[in-house]
Nucleic acid binder design. Structure first.
Lengths: 186, 186
DNA sequence: TGAGTGTGTGACTGATCAGTCACTGATCTG
DNA sequence: CAGATCAGTGACTGATCAGTCACACACTCA
């Protein structure tokens, strides 16, 4: 794209850019559906250099997924901090609202869905479990809610993913309305 | 495989076999990760003939997904019929148990997960919505439960999908135990 | 029996893509 | 300034795969 890089970056700075580009691209087209070339293009570097920064496509996906979960936990932290009432229910609700707000652009949500589909790849499955563990434990310890409530929190998060992937947020038909009940989406 | 087909099948019978093979293969490796050749091999025919029976890979996935939802609704029907008490809660619970039993082999569950990941493909997204609509409406009308209860039914189904794709059914760690609470899996 | 129809395949093609390699040019250090 | 190190790329390869096509073999029925 840019004819010549006027200034060279450090490899670490590039890696950050590439992870961000990878997050966007993988979220759009999934693990197998995304080419390293498309990530490189979004990051404004050559495909060859992507392979010099990361050992392969799979570690790149894992890095993007880890970044994704980091951003989610951050958002949950922020939400919890700004909860009106610091009761278990209040905090959990505020975290739900923060999550709903965070996934407005759908990148973080879609990447999780694609990761589930690619979980047979050992490293991806492991990264998914680590992220899920982080979120679950954080929700539990930060809110102090019961195990049942935390489970429900995650379950409705998954329902939210289904609603978005199927694109029925604004579907008014009877069945869609049942699933959309009380789900926040900005 | 078989050196020569001793007897020819009708195209319709072959189509049924191919759809079943496609269901298994797509469930294992997803939409993009599955080759038509692997489906053909499982169905014991040549890849070329698969393309004579179906116009392409995508319609084949859609057919498999439709078969998947048909089997699920059937199972829910069976479960509901055998409910101990025909109250909304009783019927919904029996349907949950039937679903848990049905997805023991994970093919139907994994195909749904992969379909979510491939929902950007218009025909696949549409098939996914149709199936979800069928299940939701059936759960609602057959059980007569409240919208909230039906929504919860679907949400916990999605949680169940997450548990299976991440493989934490038998994980005893604290966070996994929270998600596994009271989830039936045979 | 022979022509027509339906079942089924081997061998190909054209495109795509992860990953490699030899190389260029910029920056840093002594 | 020398030479070492680091950022970055173009051009390639080897493999894979959806889809095609010409053809072969099996049934059917007049």
């Amino acid at each position: 794209m840019t004819p010549r890089p006027s200034v060279l970056s450090t490899a670490d700075a590039r890696r950050t850019t590439v992870i961000s580009a990878a997050l966007s691209e993988f979220a759009l087209t999934g693990y197998l559906g995304t080419t390293v070339a498309s990530i490189a293009q979004r990051a404004d570097i050559s495909p060859a250099y992507v392979f010099k920064l990361f050992p392969g496509k799979e570690p790149l996906f894992v890095a993007a997924l880890e970044e994704c979960f980091e951003q989610i936990v951050e958002a949950l932290e922020g939400g919890a901090a700004s909860a009106d009432e610091q009761t278990p229910a209040g905090v959990l609700d505020a975290m739900g609202a923060a999550y709903a707000h965070l996934i407005a652009d759908r990148r973080l949500l879609m990447l999780q869905v694609h990761a589930q589909s690619a979980a047979e790849v050992p490293e991806i499955g492991a990264a998914l479990r680590r992220g899920l563990a982080k979120i679950t434990l954080f929700a539990k310890t930060r809110s102090g809610a019961s195990d049942d409530d935390v489970q429900r929190f995650i379950a409705f998060g998954q329902l939210c993913h289904l609603i978005v992937t199927t694109g029925i947020e604004d579907d008014g038909s009877a069945w869609a309305a049942i699933l959309n009940r009380g789900i926040r989406h900005p």
